[in-house]
């Protein structure tokens, strides 16, 4: 983990509300694993005050990496205005990433929706030489389906589901999962909470191993403030910190509200 100023190489809109930002830091590229995140300061003054967490989306051998983000509020709006050559104060890599490759010869099924696809591409980059991977992308509408081409370029099969049927299968990603149940699977999910919850319940019903990458409001990002707690299962209530024990958890650990 380090705190550095790193240079923006590019910041491009890739879909309505979604951006990809390329940055340069050989140290971060060298030390990160898929699922880890960066805590980024988006302003030089006190508004907005806190850093914003983003997963690492992709890396290159040349020491460049990308984040993929959706503009949802003032922090991400500010980020979207940043230009190449500007610098960002970045803390990271932080947290625990995905555990892979999985045991045996299970197929890795990566499931993402919206910006949730972000860390899964990095995972695919690192894992596609090791295991067969299938990517399932889900969302309410076509707008939330991102990175299809990028996965295909790695030679990975992509299947798509949208709730309104505007693209791919009309329905939920768990429908697509159903169709894969004849092989042995291990699931890696990131996306909106209802989707993660659905996938977690599905995987426990079918006894599949499943890792989810969760979000929580964060202040420090390094385990000191105890602000990012989520409920986990246990004999009595216990909490874990998303920033340091997560953001990737075994789905069966989580107490879904």
């Amino acid at each position: 983990m380090l705190q550095t100023k790193i240079k923006i190489l590019a910041n491009k809109k890739i879909a309505p509300e979604y951006y990809k930002m390329a940055l340069e830091s050989p140290e971060i590229v060298r030390t990160s694993t898929p699922g880890q995140f960066l805590h980024i300061r988006v302003s030089n003054n006190s508004e907005p005050l806190l850093r914003r967490p983003f997963g690492i989306h992709s890396i290159k051998d040349t020491g460049e990496f990308e984040i993929l983000y959706r503009v949802v509020g003032k922090g991400t709006a500010l980020l979207s205005k940043k230009k190449a050559e500007e610098e960002l104060d970045v803390l990271g890599p932080l947290g625990n990433g995905f555990k892979f490759p999985v045991a045996g010869n299970e197929t890795m099924v990566l499931i993402g929706g919206g910006a949730g696809i972000a860390p899964l591409f990095f995972l695919a980059q690192k894992a596609h030489h090791l295991r067969q991977i299938i990517v399932l992308i889900g969302g309410k509408t076509k707008d939330q389906v991102l990175c299809e081409e990028e996965f295909k370029k790695l030679g990975i099969e992509v299947r798509i589901a949208t709730e309104d049927g505007s693209y791919g299968h009309k329905g939920l990603v768990t429908d697509l999962l159903n169709a894969l149940l004849h092989t042995s699977l291990s699931i890696f999910a990131c996306g909106p909470l209802p989707m993660q919850k659905r996938i977690s319940i599905f995987s426990s019903e079918h006894n599949l191993s499943c890792q989810v990458s969760l979000e929580s409001r964060m202040a420090c990002g390094i385990g000191a403030c105890l602000g990012c707690a989520i409920k986990v299962k246990g004999e009595s209530t216990t909490y874990k910190r998303v920033c340091i024990e997560g953001p990737v958890f075994e789905a069966k650990e989580i107490m879904w509200e």
């Binding site: 006190s46 508004e47 005050l49 929580s216 409001r217 403030c225 990012c228 409920k231 209530t237």
Partner: peptide, 19 residues
């Protein structure tokens, strides 16, 4: 154990915490 989440929220030039 502390309080149930959400425990923090950002506010103009500040934050609220209920750890």
């Amino acid at each position: 154990l502390g309080n149930p989440p959400p425990r923090i929220v950002e506010t103009p030039c500040g934050m609220l915490n209920a750890i």
